[in-house]
Design a protein around this nucleic acid. Structure first.
Lengths: 243, 243
DNA sequence: CGAGCCGTTGAGGGGATTCAAGCTCAGTGG
DNA sequence: CCACTGAGCTTGAATCCCCTCAACGGCTCG
């Protein structure tokens, strides 16, 4: 496979790791960024690029994990089956996040990881992570930091997104998404069914909440799957909802 | 401090690590259990025992973490302040769990860890964990496994305990507690205020649900702070609630 | 063009919250 | 010893929010 470095920030086609990594926009936030500079080409050579369309699974529950990813762009949701058989979405992850880390422990995945938007990711072979981990303790430390971030995010989701009135939950969800897409004006807007499984609220209720936010100017140009978000209005609405 | 090994399974008074550890009932599940046998006395010497009464904090949010604990007995809750100022309980942990791991990363704690019942724990100095981690990669692997367990538990809490009707939430909470106190017939019963912050349900509603479960035989001899739990009835009620 | 899915909106009912009262119990002080 | 207090638990009644059921419109796709 020939190395033709693409200067585009987001090559749409899968690219060999080495060339892509050096221009990657999340490289500074990625796991391997703690490696010394001379190791980067080596590391990059073991990374493969992967693209996913919205709705594609990065990996599935109970799959023996051979997939650890760094998200470059897009949003990924984690879903698991509730004991009643219903899907529950328990967390979101965005650019810079490391996901599927349980593969490093040779454990099966506990959740599905599904692309909510088009997702560009780097697939890291567990063996490579382990190899570098042995030579560079700093990388192990970085790995643990990632685990802690995930735990934190999960705690915040449980503390904020699943509590309070339907209106407050939708606002908190928008807040989460806004942080994952900090630089975009149009943000991903989950379907009402997705909101059901994220917020524990029936789709009709989610729809009513979205409609209300549109009337109040927090959301505009609401299309299936995306909307324009007024972040200032969102902040005001959140402050008021927290009263 | 002289070493008088107590043969009681649960010495009430703080004891120096070495003697206590060798008879500790959770030793086989503890972090240091992956160390080779000849290292155990060394490890044990660095561990100090800590007792907490119900309501005591093992550590507090925003504290620069110098506290990593292995829980020996009892139940610990993790609480954080919601953006509205309300307390939110986002997870429980029980015997064998490693908590406060973020201290290893020199990060401040993100949550309060509070004893729900009397708690016996082993305090591990971060430096010791790091030291053994450098010599014994297996311990780092075990450490990551702990992180993953915590993440899993957090996901399950978000997926199960905070969803569905008030009745279902209380049942799921009892299920969590029953698993943390698998060998006890009387289990810890949180106060209605604690249930509020765990389940996102008002105390009156929690009280009504508890009363209903008592009438239906799932709970009996309900006293402030504890109750007798009919595990079979709980399983039936859960299966029915999940319909 | 009909079928099916998703989103929206309305009407009605049910479960949770709110408000309120009464209870037990531990602690306090007369 | 006992009234007094305050906190937590329970129960009742009224209100409100969310769920349920339903109808309709837009859209994609066969």
């Amino acid at each position: 496979m020939l190395m033709k470095a693409s200067l585009l920030p987001l090559p749409a086609e899968p690219s060999a790791g080495a060339a892509g990594c050096l221009v990657c926009q999340v490289r500074s936030r990625a796991l391997f960024s703690v490696l010394p500079a001379e190791q980067l080409p080596d590391a990059a050579a073991r990374v493969t690029h992967a693209s996913f369309a919205a709705g594609d699974a990065l990996y599935l529950e109970a799959q023996a994990g051979r997939s650890v990813f760094t998200i470059r762009t897009g949003i990924v949701r984690f879903e698991r089956a509730g004991s009643d058989g219903e899907r529950r979405i328990v967390r979101l992850a965005g650019p810079g996040a490391l996901i599927g880390q349980e593969a490093l422990l040779r454990q099966p995945h506990a959740e599905n990881a599904v692309a909510c938007t088009p997702v560009e990711a780097c697939r890291l072979p567990p063996a490579a992570v382990e190899g570098f981990g042995q030579s560079y303790p700093a990388m192990l430390r970085e790995l643990m930091r990632r685990w802690q971030s995930a735990l934190d995010a999960s705690g915040e989701w449980a503390a904020e997104v699943t509590r309070g009135s339907a209106r407050r939950r939708v606002l908190k969800l928008l807040d989460q998404i806004a942080r994952l897409q900090a630089d975009e004006e149009r943000v991903w807007l989950p379907s009402r069914l997705e909101m059901q499984d994220m917020l524990g609220v029936v789709p009709e209720t989610a729809s009513r909440a979205v409609s209300a936010l549109r009337r109040q100017g927090v959301l505009a140009e609401v299309l299936p799957g995306s909307a324009r978000l007024d972040r200032a209005a969102l902040a005001r609405a959140l402050a008021q909802a927290d009263g």
